[in-house]
């Protein structure tokens, strides 16, 4: 089979594998980023009385940490130059402040629900979710993710069509030989053996090419990119297990493609 025929199969297969690997990498990177955002994100709660973590957890299961903000520190900032008694009076009148941490990077509607639950409790005076910054971060993030997923899906569909077209060419290239072999009693696996061999070879080539590209991205481009998120998450850019994922995916695609050729050729003699 001519090299161009291999290339016409390898390139769309590589496009699918690239899409798959980009998806895996993006998922891992964004998961890490989401974890960082989650760790950095806090809801500020102002209460009339001291409250324990269990109290907050009874109100909402997403709450996993509470950090009390030192009231003395707040008073010392505002009570500079005034008497100790007055400072104590301010301290006694001051409510309790808590930074609340959540277990996941929640959507704005979920955050709003937590806020309403907390505010409906009579011990709690006020809740600040810093919703606008959280919301804009999250929406931008979700938007980028959606665009990438749509692009990957589109690229995969187009590539599958290209592979099917290439399969049509293979079908015509091998039809006569397969018919002759069938006339002399060759079983399907023997008739299509050469197609499987060629397709497996191409699957290996495509897997190697994509793996080399991602190794380059991980070990060369990522460190020079200067993009903080990528530099921090370099380890998740490409992992050894990804080679297996790519190879298995490539094999599944070629098996489906070859079977489609074999079964469509079967009808010719019948």
């Amino acid at each position: 089979m001519k090299f161009i025929n291999h290339l016409m199969f390898i390139l769309p297969l590589m496009a699918i594998l690239l899409g798959l690997e980009f998806y895996l990498v993006f998922e891992r990177t964004t998961n890490n980023y989401e974890t960082t955002l989650t760790e950095d994100y806090r809801i500020l709660v102002v209460s009339k009385t001291p409250l324990e973590l269990e109290f907050f957890q009874d109100l909402n299961e997403h709450i996993i940490t509470t950090i009390e903000i030192e009231r003395k520190g707040i008073v010392s900032n505002v009570a500079e130059g005034i008497s100790k008694d007055n400072a104590n009076a301010i301290l006694n009148a001051l409510p309790y402040f808590y930074n609340i941490g959540l277990d996941a990077y929640l959507e704005t509607s979920e955050i709003e629900k937590i806020k309403q639950t907390l505010e409906s409790n009579h011990y709690i005076k006020r809740v600040e979710t810093f919703g606008s910054s959280h919301s804009s971060n999250y929406k931008l993030f979700s938007f980028i993710k959606l665009i990438l997923e749509v692009f990957i899906l589109f690229m995969t569909v187009v590539s599958l069509f290209l592979i099917m077209k290439q399969m049509e060419i293979w079908k015509y290239a091998h039809k006569e030989r397969m018919q002759i072999m069938e006339t002399f009693g060759a079983p399907m696996m023997l008739r299509s053996g050469v197609l499987f061999r060629v397709a497996f070879f191409d699957a290996i080539i495509a897997t190697i090419c994509v793996s080399i590209l991602f190794f380059y991205i991980k070990y060369s481009w990522a460190s020079q990119s200067g993009i903080d998120m990528i530099v921090k998450n370099r380890d998740v850019l490409f992992q050894a297990s990804d080679i297996m994922v790519l190879f298995i995916s490539a094999i599944v695609i070629v098996i489906l493609a070859v079977y489609s050729v074999v079964f469509s050729s079967k009808g010719v003699e019948d």
Partner: peptide
């Protein structure tokens, strides 16, 4: 499968030869 088996015991000659050119 039986037909495939039977065909292995047949010799078939065609007017247009039907050889695999590759």
């Amino acid at each position: 499968p039986k037909l495939q088996e039977l065909r292995t015991h047949m010799g078939i000659i065609f007017q247009d030869y039907k050889l695999v050119n590759e």
